[in-house]
Design a protein around this nucleic acid. Structure first.
Lengths: 329, 329
DNA sequence: CAGTTCTATGTAATCGATTACATCAGCCTG
DNA sequence: CAGGCTGATGTAATCGATTACATAGAACTG
């Protein structure tokens, strides 16, 4: 701690009491003009910086919300976090972020440090026992886990898969590959379940390949697809990144999208509309998701009310671009 | 504040003193086994959650570092922030993030809240007067501003531009377009200055177009390029995103990269290697930059030593992929 | 068994800012 | 001019956890 200057030091330098210094700083209107200037000068001269811990202790207000995301380097989260930041800022709350995969002891230490008053949880793969024991308000966002028994917000993933299948079927595709996400992930399950249900409802020929959300997983899936005896004419991938990898690798293998295969992604990340070809994909309203979740949590923190248990499901929205085309007949 | 349970309540419930509760929680070894269990039971029964402000006040340790970035939704920052998070975590510090473009009053409020003990500043366009007045340790990272008079870390941007020009010149390109970044940005200036210097040193024909770091800016630049009477045979863009936009739009206009024009980007974002074609670009070691900057700041905070004024320049590194090719002669 | 050491626990000071309440000077009013 | 009012400032309690120091009892030693 380099900051050895306390409010008492400023008071001494200005020849006033600590109360006056505090008032001059936080409600300048109530101290005399001349006094205020002396205080300000003393603040500058001493290099005073407020001690946030002392202030927060005395003020007894919530201070920060903690965002836990499985992979901070993932571009999917950045826009969500930006929206959260925006809401929190307006409420005077700091936003603290942490990688939820840092290890359970580390995570527990962070959560139990008491520095955050509420949590926005973007990871559905933490040990439910640990999460259930957390005694602060927690909102689930995007990913989730029924074992947590927590309120949350997400898009309707299985409905989204259905919308994707509908779109491809309407274009005449009857043999469709789903490149699924990582096997242990809830989103993977829901998207695959929606795909399976929609496909069998329409009695179409479905193939599922366990992939992942990454570019590399998509590229690998391209080889699997290319090696198939009867190649599906359309592919629904578990994420945009996966779709990018799939399409890039197809290109390298000599195939063209959508000429040789139609591709639908998932997420509608910033880049999706600028890809070659522009990607047809399920839109995730990331800013809105982040904003709504943050508003609910912040609201609960501010008036001390419980979060409730409600789960909100946002209906899916398909953005049709150029990576999907009608099957030539 | 829903958390009305204090350590005294737990102590009462367990029939011990507050000191014993505190000890049972933070150094379980020194309290008797039977007492410890009573305390733990009381903690559970009361739903006790520690008050971080009180603890931090008493402990007098630094608590958090604040990361200020101009656009949290930008994918460039996410990996840097992940690295920072990693370093901070190991030092027991929280990472707080905020959008540096939130407005000066808002920013000032955040910085002066005393909740953070040090700052990592990724924005070179804040008012120097404001930044110079900050009394906590600040490190500049990637972007910078000489007016801040602060220590920092970044890659050598003008040297990087030179490396890009060298590469293109070696491939036989003598007429090169630079799509510059936003006019008011330091990075734009340094990269353009390096470009200009390298080009005139080799007596090549340089054209500069004011662009931006975005996909849209790159796409717009593609039209400018296409409309030129004598089209440059190579393009050096100010960012990867800009390069993506340029290449995508060229494709749409019927041109092919690198057949019709070679393109070099800047940053080497995750996607660069998977683009079509894989992008030749200047690599920014984002994780390393974040890590080193965080280590220096955290180190200073932990032992109360000043940051010093040293500025570290990381030498550039060109990653050659497939978006650049030799000029057919 | 008196004296010493050790273990477990309690008492109370402490961290630094905020603010209710007290005080005081100056001014106004009838 | 006494009494009341206003505005500026000071005094001291307060927020909740930690921990130096004190204490009491148990265990051990010669």
């Amino acid at each position: 701690m380099s900051n050895r200057v306390r409010i008492a030091d400023v008071a001494a330098a200005a020849g006033v009491s600590t109360a006056t210094v505090s008032r001059a700083l936080s409600s300048p209107g109530v101290v005399g003009a001349e006094t205020r200037e002396r205080v300000m000068a003393a603040v500058l001269a001493t290099g005073y910086r407020i001690n946030g811990a002392a202030r927060d202790l005395r003020m007894q207000q919530p201070r920060a919300i903690l965002v836990l995301a499985p992979n901070l380097a993932n571009t999917f989260f950045s826009r969500i976090i930006a929206a959260i930041q925006d809401v929190a800022r307006q409420a005077g709350l700091a936003v603290q972020i942490s990688d939820s995969r840092a290890g359970t002891e580390v995570l527990e230490a962070i959560v139990q440090s008491g520095r955050a008053d509420g949590i926005l949880l973007l990871d559905g793969a933490l040990p439910p026992d640990m999460v259930r024991n957390w005694t602060l308000p927690v909102m689930q966002l995007c990913e989730w886990n029924d074992g947590y028994a927590l309120p949350g917000l997400r898009i309707d993933n299985s409905a989204a898969a259905r919308v994707a299948v509908d779109h491809l079927a309407d274009l005449g595709h009857g043999h469709i590959l789903h490149v699924a996400g990582p096997p242990e992930n809830v989103l993977s399950h829901m998207r695959q379940a929606g795909f399976d249900a929609a496909m069998s409802a329409r009695q179409l020929s479905a193939v599922v390949h366990d992939g992942g959300f990454t570019i590399a997983a998509g590229a690998a899936a391209a080889h699997v697809w290319a090696d198939m005896a009867e190649r599906p004419t359309a592919v629904f991938t578990a994420s945009d990144e996966c779709a990018f990898g799939f399409i890039s690798e197809c290109y390298r293998l000599g195939f063209r999208v959508p000429r040789d295969v139609s591709v639908i992604g998932f997420d509608d990340v910033d880049f999706a509309g600028h890809f070659i070809p522009p990607l047809t994909t399920i839109h995730q309203p990331r800013a809105r998701l982040g904003r709504k979740a943050a508003e609910r949590l912040v609201g609960a923190l501010l008036n001390g009310a419980p979060l409730g248990t409600g789960y909100e499901l946002i209906p899916p929205h398909l953005v049709v671009r150029e990576s999907t085309a009608a099957l030539p007949r």
